[in-house]
Amino acid sequence: MDKLKIALVQSHLHWENPEANRSMFEAKIKSMPETVDLVILPEMFTTGFTMKPQNIEVAEGEKTVDWMQNLARETKTAITGSIVFSEKEKFFNRLFFVEPNGNSITYDKKHTFTLAGEDQVYEAGSKKITIEFKGFRFSPLICYDLRFPVWSRNVDDYDVLFYVANWPKPRIAAWDTLLKARAIENMAYCIGVNRVGLDGLGYEYPGHTAAYDTLGNQLAFSNKEEILYVELDREHIFTQRNKLKFLQDRDRFNLQG
């Protein structure tokens, strides 16, 4: 495919209530007036950014994955977002990318948010992944990962970098600035999907879900509860990279674990 239509779902979240959130998002997705190829949901979209994963039944993780697979199949749309997931008595902030055919790919958040104590509760991931879907190559990352440009670096020839997040109001200027910067420096589409509203601890989230093209031009933006639609064009990526060739001049180095 040369073009891809994506829905960015900016929503409030029911605090630590997976069933209510699944029901809410299912209604939103099924009522979308436009046909899309991919739906992107926020970080921890079934619970909010909780540091008490023990409050969530262990079975809820698998329930949500089953729900994503069933809904993706029914709507013929890929669905992605991160959730609280328990495995071998450990907790993960795990993103699932579920395709309509049932295929599921996962990414565990690399940079756990130490300011909130996420590093004390959730296991940090160690592997970047690239997802190939309908002719586009995606690099999925989660919230705090946005602050670390080396981890986001386009050494895998991806076309689309996207972040799912619970990014609070006091630091939203950093979110806006870094999303645009990641698009420019990696010559890729960059998408960030944030939540809105107050969480169970009283923290406020202002949205600012957005999408940028390879030159940093803003394609979509919102600060209210709504679904945004953006169309990605492979010709735009090919044309700009071949015209400007900035990625060919990037510094060469390897990450040391």
Rank of each mutant, 00 (worst) to 15 (best):
N186R: 03
R137V: 11
W15P: 00
Q248H: 13
N186A: 12
V58D: 07
A20I: 07
E62W: 04
E185Y: 13
K169E: 13
G102S: 07
V160C: 07
P18N: 03
P33E: 15
M44A: 04
D37E: 15
M68K: 01
F45E: 01
Y229Q: 10
G200C: 10
N223F: 07
G48N: 09
I129R: 06
A124C: 03
F45Y: 11
I172F: 02
E231I: 12
V150C: 04
N55P: 03
K127E: 12
F148V: 13
M68S: 01
G61N: 04
R137Y: 08
K127A: 04
N55M: 07
A173G: 11
H111K: 12
V36N: 11
T50R: 03
L161E: 12
T47Y: 05
S222Y: 11
E123A: 02
G102F: 07
K169F: 06
D2Y: 02
E19C: 01
F136E: 09
E19I: 07
S86M: 06
T114N: 09
R182V: 06
I131F: 05
D108Y: 04
I79F: 00
S126T: 09
V164W: 01
A116L: 15
F97Y: 05
Q54V: 08
F49C: 05
F113W: 14
P149V: 13
G202N: 11
D251N: 14
M1L: 08
Y212H: 14
L141H: 15
Q54S: 11
S82N: 03
A181S: 14
D2L: 07
D157C: 04
N223D: 15
G117D: 13
S104T: 13
K245Y: 06
P100E: 04
T47P: 09
K243E: 12
M24P: 02
V155D: 15
A181M: 15
F246S: 08
I131K: 04
Y107E: 05
P100K: 02
Y144V: 08
Y158A: 06
S222K: 12
E60N: 06
F138D: 00
